[in-house]
Amino acid sequence: MRIHRTRHADNFTVLANGTIRDRRLSFTARGILAHLLSLPDDAREDVRTLADRNPGVGRRGVSKAVQELEDAGYYVRRTIRDPETGLVWTETFVYDTPQDSPLPASPGTGAPETTEAGVTAWPCSRWG
């Protein structure tokens, strides 16, 4: 097989071979990861929009692929609750290499350094 590559000056995404060849991920998950990494920061993509833009995979297939990415550490979701308003939202982070540790939870409403409700103790000081 001969591989032909075009030199690009702009509007392209670089991915590590290890990411593209990660055997824990299906080809669908790898394609979705490449697509997500090609988007600008603060892009809004979810399972529904990904499925709508990629006919033939369907929401169930996209959902399964996103779960693969999450399980492998490429896709991280963090739920945040505003202590004043009680509003809850989810922040999503996409990485080009798998992350070993989860993101820290948003600050809880309990007293610091206790196990009261609202406080999450993380075993990894890196996220402290």
Score class of each variant (00 low, 15 high):
Q67G: 05
T13K: 01
T109M: 09
T97W: 04
R53E: 07
R21A: 04
R24M: 00
A16W: 04
R2M: 08
N54F: 02
L37A: 11
L25Y: 08
A111E: 07
D52E: 10
A51Y: 03
P112I: 01
L33A: 03
P107S: 15
G110F: 11
P107Q: 13
G18V: 04
F93K: 02
I3T: 10
D82V: 00
R126V: 14
R5S: 00
G61F: 13
S63D: 06
L33G: 02
E116W: 07
E70G: 05
P104F: 05
V66R: 01
P112C: 05
G73A: 08
P123R: 13
R7S: 04
L39C: 09
L37Y: 10
N17P: 00
S125P: 12
G58I: 03
T85A: 05
V57C: 04
F93Y: 12
F27W: 15
D41E: 14
E116A: 08
D71F: 08
Q99M: 09
A72W: 07
T109I: 12
A117H: 12
T6M: 12
W89A: 07
S101P: 00
T90D: 01
L39Q: 03
Q99N: 02
S63E: 09
A29E: 00
T85K: 05
N17S: 09
L39A: 15
L69Y: 00
W122M: 12
R44C: 05
T49I: 02
D42P: 02
P102K: 12
L33S: 02
T13P: 06
P83C: 01
A9H: 12
T49Y: 07
P55G: 11
T6S: 15
L36V: 06
T120K: 04
D52N: 15
G86E: 00
H4E: 13
D46C: 06
A16Y: 13
I80C: 11
A111P: 03
R78Y: 05
T92R: 08
L69H: 04
I80A: 06
G58A: 00
G86N: 02
G73I: 05
W122R: 05
Q67T: 13
D71E: 12
P55N: 12
T19P: 04
Y75P: 05
D41G: 06
V88Y: 09
I20T: 15
G118M: 02
